[in-house]
Nucleic acid binder design. Structure first.
Length: 508
DNA sequence: AAAAAAC
């Protein structure tokens, strides 16, 4: 399974190029080629210039792994993942799931329950790294909707010893909704394995139980949010001595200064104290330089997979901008252009910047007689669950959301994302923002990318409309375009323009 | 109040 061609000259400290490619390559650390008939075999992609110690690799074409019944997916997007490994363990790319030495129960889950046929690109590269001793840490970046969840869920399931009735795999997620979504995937994929799991998130009213009354967790996999996991751990209801794999989903946010850094570090240290050796997996579509530098200090000796930011915007999701003279116009655009076409479209998520504007927009649309639901943090867990369920069941077509759903939310019917407000960077240095308002804020590139990634899951068609009001928003949009080098097409507020845009995005 | 989690 491993490639013996790796040269012995490789020292532990040197970065080696783990090239996963369809074409013959002379990289020292070649992982075996993907199958001959992968997408993009016809084209030859240029080798990208080296950047520092990261050797670049020839482009490969990402595969859409998830093929549902009769659905045919369009040509998948190009992806260019750079793999960097340390040490002398050679890794073979997995062209089939059989290559991974998975249990037959797990394979059955992949094929029968998940209906997967073969690994996507990120899975082909990352799974051998996750599953091969000495189980090195991994920092993995991959496009939105490319199958990251499968990577770490499969990693957790295959590393758990089903005969050991104790928690062995943890996954920490930034929101309750994401944790619940991930555990659903785990349950489905692991259906035949007998592996037990539990979701550690704040309970809804029906399931509330004070920590002190809770029996110690025996589930082998625990997926949850940082606060609840920590709470269970400090209440001695969640043992960590058998933990051998710790996953951070949306890892840049979980370890970012602006995110859950403190929680994540404390959880990691607690596990470190009683579990001698465990593997840390960090997955996200985005890792800005700050976070990258930070994680390289906390996690030692790791393998890594990265994508250049210019290649992160999904080509299957077309981006548009619409300049609105005032805020009222934004609401009218949504009313006239979106709801009037809603029957022809799939589902839509409208992102707003604050809880308050979520409420304002919700009220405005409901007052106009439109059927819309809203999700935000300031809601009871019961209501949040209900709103999500209705949306996932397709009962509601348009959902207003704060950045609560910006990351990870996977609903394949969503093909339209509306940025009612552009996401902004929070600048803690300027406390006296009151008078300056937020007009000087920079756009938050990472959140922008995560938001638009809610459309175009697994290579499906999608569109994003950015509603811009005023010079500041126009300027921010320009910065976003520059940052990703992506094209954002301006459309006017006319039936013809909007329809042409949706048509060119393949939505109608 | 930026949002999120959750103290």
């Amino acid at each position: 399974m491993v490639d013996d061609a790796a040269p012995g000259s490789t020292t532990n400290d040197s970065y080696c190029d783990a090239t996963i490619t369809h074409s013959p390559t002379t990289a020292p650390f070649v992982v075996s080629p993907l199958p001959k008939r992968g997408w993009g075999d016809e084209e030859h992609h240029d080798v990208v210039a080296d950047t520092g110690d990261l050797s670049s690799v020839p482009s490969e074409v990402m595969e859409s792994l998830k093929i549902e019944d009769e659905t045919t997916l369009e040509e998948p997007i190009d992806s260019n993942i750079t793999a960097v490994t340390t040490g002398d363990t050679p890794y073979s790319s997995a062209s089939t799931f059989e290559d991974l030495n998975l249990s037959k129960e797990l394979l059955k889950g992949l094929y029968v329950e998940m209906r997967f046929h073969k690994p996507s690109k990120i899975q082909a590269i990352s799974l051998p790294m996750i599953l091969t001793p000495p189980y090195k840490h991994l920092i993995a970046q991959a496009h939105n909707g490319s199958g990251k969840t499968t990577c770490f869920v499969l990693g957790m399931l295959s590393r758990v010893d089903v005969n050991l009735k104790a928690p062995q795999a943890f996954c920490i997620c930034p929101t309750r909704e994401l944790a619940m979504q991930n555990i659903e995937v785990l349950k489905k994929m692991g259906k035949y394995t007998g592996i037990t799991s539990e979701c550690a998130v704040p309970a809804d009213s029906a399931n509330y139980m004070p920590v002190s009354k809770r029996p110690p967790t025996t589930a082998q996999v625990v997926i949850g949010t940082p606060g609840t996991i920590k709470k269970w751990m400090s209440g001695r209801k969640l043992g960590v001595s058998c933990v051998k794999i710790l996953v951070f989903d949306e890892a840049d946010h979980m370890l970012g200064e602006d995110g859950f850094q403190d929680y994540s570090l404390r959880i990691m240290r607690d596990i470190e104290r009683s579990s001698s050796h465990f593997q840390v997996l960090l997955f996200s579509a985005t890792f800005d330089e700050n976070v990258k530098n930070f994680v390289s200090r906390v996690v030692k000796d790791y393998n890594q997979l990265f994508v250049k930011k210019e290649e992160l915007s999904l080509e299957s999701v077309k981006q548009f901008k619409l300049i609105c003279p005032n805020e009222q116009t934004k609401i009218r655009v949504i009313k006239d252009r979106i709801f009037e076409l809603a029957d022809k479209l799939g589902q839509t998520i409208i992102f707003v910047g604050t809880r308050k504007s979520a409420g304002v927009l919700h009220k405005a649309l409901v007052d106009l007689g439109y059927d819309v639901t809203t999700i935000k943090g300031a809601m009871t867990n019961d209501i949040r669950d209900k709103i999500i369920k209705e949306f996932k069941d397709g009962l509601t077509k348009v959902l207003i959301s704060t950045d609560l759903l910006a990351r990870g939310f996977d609903q394949q019917q969503v093909n339209l994302v509306i940025n009612y407000d552009l996401p902004l960077k929070h600048d803690p240095s300027s406390q006296a923002m009151k008078y300056r308002s937020s007009s000087s804020s920079e756009p938050n590139f990472e959140v922008y990318l995560h938001r638009i990634g809610r459309a175009g899951r697994f290579g499906r068609k999608g569109a994003v409309f950015n509603l811009l009001c005023g010079d500041q928003e126009i300027k921010r949009m320009d910065k976003i375009q520059k940052h990703f080098g992506s094209e954002v097409i301006e459309v006017r507020d006319t039936d013809e323009d909007i329809e042409a845009a949706l048509k060119s995005a393949g939505l109608i």
